[in-house]
């Protein structure tokens, strides 16, 4: 399926914070239904790269096109209204979950469809229950976020993003804040999503997940994309020395 028109199309993406250049011109395409896993040492710009894909960070230069809409063209951002509209199609899952602390689980999931898409309360709740069942938390519909474990919070956060019926899902280190024993339940949900054909961009340190689920593994370092390819190539026969160093460091950690 890799010959299809890309759903995410990035050219010359540059981003700096003050004098510090975080992304030095990234070119990258994601085909529909592809699962892309972005790996690399901390500070390499992975999260910034991902956050540029839904406009949470404003690129300085370059083009970002998603779902056929231009998010950023020559460093010029889309207007607010169009940006909001585009964000409906791009789900985001954060490292720190960011569940709305004052809303119950089901309200966390329905607030987007109701406030943004104008879906009725009844319909939004029906859809939310289906999503909760999918992430295995239908019995927690009326719990408050504070009463959930990290793994449960992240699964709710995934359901919340899915409620907007996005075409692309961005995961920014979704398991990095979790206790080790809770990582599996979140990855499991992500695997199901991948198998259903969701287009996913995942920043993670879970190399087993990358090996098992990714179509493409992207290695970033120092704000550049140093290597990308199928996981079997990247993990067994990387061409770049920096990729080898990084993989050696992370794989011998355990």
């Amino acid at each position: 399926m890799k010959t299809q028109k890309p759903i995410v199309h990035i050219r010359g993406l540059r981003k700096s914070f003050g004098d510090h250049v975080v992304l030095h011109g990234i070119d990258f395409d994601v085909a529909p239904s592809q699962v892309v896993v972005v790996i690399g040492p901390s500070g390499s710009g992975k999260s910034t790269f991902l956050r540029c894909c839904n406009g949470l960070e404003k690129p300085d230069r370059g083009d970002v096109e998603i779902c056929g809409h231009s998010l950023c063209e020559g460093g010029q951002m889309l207007g607010d209204q169009a940006l909001n509209h585009l964000r409906e199609q791009v789900g985001m899952v954060f490292q720190s979950f960011n569940l709305f602390a004052h809303l119950s689980v089901i309200d966390n999931i329905t607030v987007g469809p109701r406030k943004v898409r104008g879906v009725s309360k009844q319909q939004a709740e029906a859809e939310a229950l289906v999503l909760l069942e999918k992430v295995g938390l239908e019995q927690k519909a009326h719990a408050m976020p504070a009463s959930l474990s990290g793994g449960q919070k992240q699964r709710v956060a995934i359901a919340r993003a899915l409620a907007m019926q996005p075409q692309v899902m961005l995961f920014d280190e979704p398991t990095s804040a979790l206790d080790p024993e809770l990582v599996g339940e979140v990855l499991q949900v992500m695997k199901v999503l991948a198998s259903e054909g969701m287009t996913m961009m995942v920043v993670t340190h879970e190399m087993d997940f990358a090996r098992e689920v990714a179509d493409i593994v992207v290695v970033m370092d120092g704000g550049v994309l140093i290597e990308s390819g199928p996981p079997e190539v990247i993990f067994t026969n990387p061409t770049q020395g920096r990729t080898r160093d990084f993989l050696r460091a992370i794989l011998t950690r355990a």
Partner: peptide, 14 residues
């Protein structure tokens, strides 16, 4: 927390 606003905006909320 900043993340609350980011999560809301990434759902497409104005």
């Amino acid at each position: 927390d900043r993340g609350q606003m980011e999560a809301a905006r990434s759902l497409g909320m104005p």
